[in-house]
Amino acid sequence: MLGAATERSPDRIGKVGARTSPAGRPTPVSATDSSLVKSTPGDRPMPGKAVPTEGLTSMTTDLQQHPTGRSSAVQTPSGSPILRVDELRKRYSDDGPLVCDGLSFSVDQGDFVAIVGPSGCGKSTMLRMICGLLEPSAGEVRLRDQKIVSPPPEMALVFQDYTRSLYPWLSVERNVRFPLAKRRDLSKEEKAARVAEAIETVGLTGFESYHPGQLSGGMQQRVAIARALAFRPRILLLDEPFASVDALTKEGLEDTLLDVQKQFADSGMTMLLVTHDIDEAIYLADRILVLSKPPCAVAEELVVDLPGPRSQVETRSLPEFLRIRAHIHDVMGLSAQRGGTRGAARSTA
């Protein structure tokens, strides 16, 4: 049984806004016109009516009409996806609540995928399962058709809590070098070069000998990102990386992330960003997965066709940006208030 994301044929990748039912079966949605296309962000349809379901479709069909932009990575025919999440379920204890329920999606190499969902919907649990830190109760995660059972060397995870994930007893330079310490295949010079490059990418050159306790929050999170970059992962997982920094620092870090992706583009670095911040997801990602309220499952998947290079002020004021934003708000509002009716929608389809 495959989710909507895994069932797509390569040429249609990212173009179909199908909805996944709780059981993981794809629900075809007919492309009909609706009032939502013309509506403004402030003019949201009432929850509980049938309009949003149709609006969803028109939204995504509308997005299709903008095939330009940064999403070229999405359209490259790369054969099988680099990461495939299949019917992931998690219960922390036998009689505990279901945290994740049939989570399925796939990510192609070079994609920047954002996963948004209401807080407490199991995003972090999902990410921990994807990177092999937590064993799923059912389902599996495959990295290039290899089932993940322990943290693979091709993934690096940046945690939200930099104060807890950085090592206060190590300097910035040694924190960044930390993941390379046991790599015997790299010479000392190669390691030093990688560390210097990673530190430079996040703009912390000159701060190598500082300790995390001497840096501001935003700088500490840069160190955490640099550390992940020095590891040279194929997939960079980010768990609410900017949730604990102030708004201005956050914008700076978001741009750093875009720079990083550009810089490592030829190596095809794939980004998977988990966030509760819808704006951040739209600004950064090529593709957005919207999760339902707990137990989490993919409620909707959509392509962000915003022109690049993106900039904080211009991109965020594009009508397209605002439309996507309003749309995700609707979807999340839907899944929060009409959680029980998704089954009904399926039966009528």
């Binding site: 050159t205 000159g206 000998s209 306790g213 001497q214 620092t249 741009d255 904080q312």
Partner: peptide, 24 residues
């Protein structure tokens, strides 16, 4: 301009001339 704004956005980055120092 956008550029100067971005520079201001990252005052904690390379903007300040860092003087390396060890903790006390």
């Amino acid at each position: 301009t956008l550029v100067s704004e971005k520079n201001e956005v990252r005052p904690d980055g390379a903007a300040a001339a860092p003087t390396p120092r060890r903790p006390a």
